[in-house]
Computed example of a mutant assay.
Amino acid sequence: MRRTAPLLALCLAATGLTGCTAADTTPPAAPAGITAQAGSATSVHVMWQAPAPADGVTGYLVFQADRLVRELPADKTMADVTGLTPQTAYTFTVRARDAAGNTSAPGAAAEATTPAAKAEDRRVPTAPARTTGRADGPRSATLSWTAATDDTGVTAYDVYQGGVRIHTVGPAETGTTLSGLQPDSVYTFTVRARDGADNSSPESPAVDVTTPPSAGQGPGTAPAEFTATASPGAVTLTWTAPDTGRPTGEYELHVNGRPVTVIQFGDGAVPPSGATRVEHRLTVTEPAGTQWTLKLRARLPDGNWGAFSAERSIVLMA
């Protein structure tokens, strides 16, 4: 925990000023859990663990040996370092920085060796054919997938959640554990294989993982078994209402990460909570070929929004 109270007391004693504020000179803790994985012949993916909120971290500095190669905000805990040399060993460290400009000591160094370059490699790897996942608790999950193939060899597997890459592992791995998840949430994961020329495969089949509520949180609040089906000029949504103890008649729909509408069901039209499927049809005017990623959440009896459903990707039809 960051502490400046003793400095503040000294400042007040020395000056007698009630408005005196001590400067923050305490650096944050060094980032933990630093890993490095070669993604191609010229790039390495560096990751580390998110700090505790009390550390007050506002950004990170990524170093290759003693050279600063990336600066990132506090919400980013991974970085791709590019422009590297094939068949070369590299060492990476990460430092944390706070709002006062204090910089931590470097975290434990991570090493990675880039593979040999393959000339004119334009063939993408095959997609992992099968993906499975399970929640290990309210804040972690384990994924596994079938190995992909490539004419020059797979060099890494990238895990995506909601269309964003969140994790990378080596070519010999066909599974990984993800941490830092939220309780009572549905996550949709896919996996892509990558080769030494940075060609990425198509996505694996998506897998939904639902984290359980944390202790004392009560039953889950996420709509279950969410589906989205495109038809000419329309999108049909179906889901199972969460069991909140009473009928749920209001849902917030998000499209491509943004809230776009609130779906409301009038009296008599709301199915019993958790008992039957709910269906809603949207009329769309966007051009055919537009891609949407959709998810929704329910208004709870206490007035707050519950956890999100799984995400579904569709392409609109004419």
Rank of each mutant, 00 (worst) to 15 (best):
121 D>M: 00
143 L>G: 03
114 T>Q: 02
43 S>H: 08
120 E>G: 00
151 D>N: 14
58 T>L: 10
139 R>L: 01
79 A>V: 07
42 T>Q: 08
124 V>A: 11
67 R>E: 08
92 F>Q: 08
71 E>R: 10
78 M>V: 09
122 R>P: 07
113 T>I: 14
151 D>E: 14
103 T>S: 11
136 D>Y: 01
131 T>Q: 09
106 P>G: 09
77 T>F: 09
46 V>I: 09
124 V>W: 00
66 D>R: 06
50 A>Q: 03
58 T>M: 10
46 V>R: 01
103 T>P: 05
98 D>R: 15
134 R>H: 06
42 T>D: 05
111 E>M: 00
70 R>E: 03
63 F>C: 01
94 V>E: 00
99 A>I: 14
88 T>A: 08
71 E>Q: 13
132 T>K: 01
92 F>T: 08
41 A>P: 10
113 T>Y: 02
76 K>L: 13
84 L>C: 08
56 G>S: 06
80 D>K: 12
96 A>D: 01
135 A>N: 01
141 A>P: 01
121 D>V: 01
39 G>S: 12
45 H>C: 05
101 G>S: 06
110 A>G: 04
146 T>V: 07
152 T>S: 14
124 V>C: 07
130 R>L: 15
148 A>N: 00
149 T>P: 06
36 A>M: 05
73 P>R: 06
85 T>W: 15
55 D>T: 12
102 N>H: 09
121 D>N: 06
138 P>S: 03
50 A>E: 03
65 A>C: 00
131 T>I: 04
100 A>W: 12
58 T>Q: 11
96 A>M: 03
111 E>G: 00
101 G>L: 13
60 Y>E: 04
76 K>S: 13
53 P>N: 06
146 T>K: 06
96 A>L: 08
72 L>P: 05
145 W>V: 12
38 A>M: 10
149 T>E: 06
82 T>K: 15
59 G>K: 03
57 V>E: 02
90 Y>T: 06
105 A>W: 06
135 A>S: 09
54 A>N: 05
109 A>E: 12
93 T>A: 05
46 V>T: 07
145 W>L: 14
68 L>G: 11
99 A>G: 09
125 P>M: 11
125 P>W: 02
91 T>E: 15
79 A>M: 05
69 V>A: 01
99 A>S: 10
83 G>V: 15
53 P>D: 14
91 T>M: 10
136 D>Q: 01
88 T>P: 05
56 G>P: 13
144 S>A: 13
149 T>M: 13
77 T>R: 05
133 G>C: 04
45 H>Y: 14
121 D>C: 01
153 G>L: 12
79 A>R: 05
131 T>K: 04
127 A>N: 05
113 T>C: 06
137 G>W: 02
92 F>E: 10
95 R>Y: 04
100 A>T: 07
45 H>T: 07
143 L>S: 04
117 A>K: 04
149 T>F: 10
68 L>Y: 00
145 W>M: 12
101 G>W: 12
61 L>I: 14
48 W>E: 03
45 H>W: 15
119 A>Y: 00
152 T>F: 08
98 D>V: 11
108 A>M: 06
94 V>H: 00
64 Q>F: 02
105 A>L: 15
60 Y>I: 15
88 T>M: 14
69 V>E: 00
51 P>V: 07
134 R>M: 14
114 T>N: 02
50 A>F: 11
67 R>M: 08
150 D>T: 10
97 R>F: 02
126 T>M: 02
